[in-house]
Amino acid sequence: MTDKETIIADLREFLLDEIIRDPDYDLDADEPLISSGLVDSFSLVDVAMWIEGTYGVTIDNADLNADRFDTLMAFAEYIQENE
C-alpha cells in the first residue's frame, strides 16, 4: 500500500502540472479543489483517469463530484482504501 503522503505528493504534482498549470501554487491537502473552482468539472474526469492509470483504482462516475472528492486528502484516502 502506498503511503498517504506519497499519494498526496504525486497527485499534487499531477494537478499543478496538468490541470492548474502553475507549479508554484501552494496546494494544501485540505484545500477545496472543485467547490473553489480551482479544478473545473471537465478536468475531474482527467483526475479520475490519472488515478486509475497510476494506482489501478477506479472511481465510479456517480461519485465524481465535489461532495465526495473536493480535496487531495479525499482522493488520497479513497485511493488508499481501494488500492
Binding site: R21, D22, D24, Y25, D26, S36, G37, L38, V39, D40, S43
Partner: peptide
C-alpha cells in the same frame, strides 16, 4: 504568489470558468 492564488479564487467563484494561467 498570494495575489495569483487570490485571482484564481476570485474568478473561479465569480464566474462560470476556471482560470488556466
Amino acid at each position: 504568489k498570494q495575489i495569483a492564488a487570490a485571482v484564481r479564487r476570485a474568478v473561479a467563484q465569480g464566474s462560470d470558468v476556471a482560470v488556466r494561467q
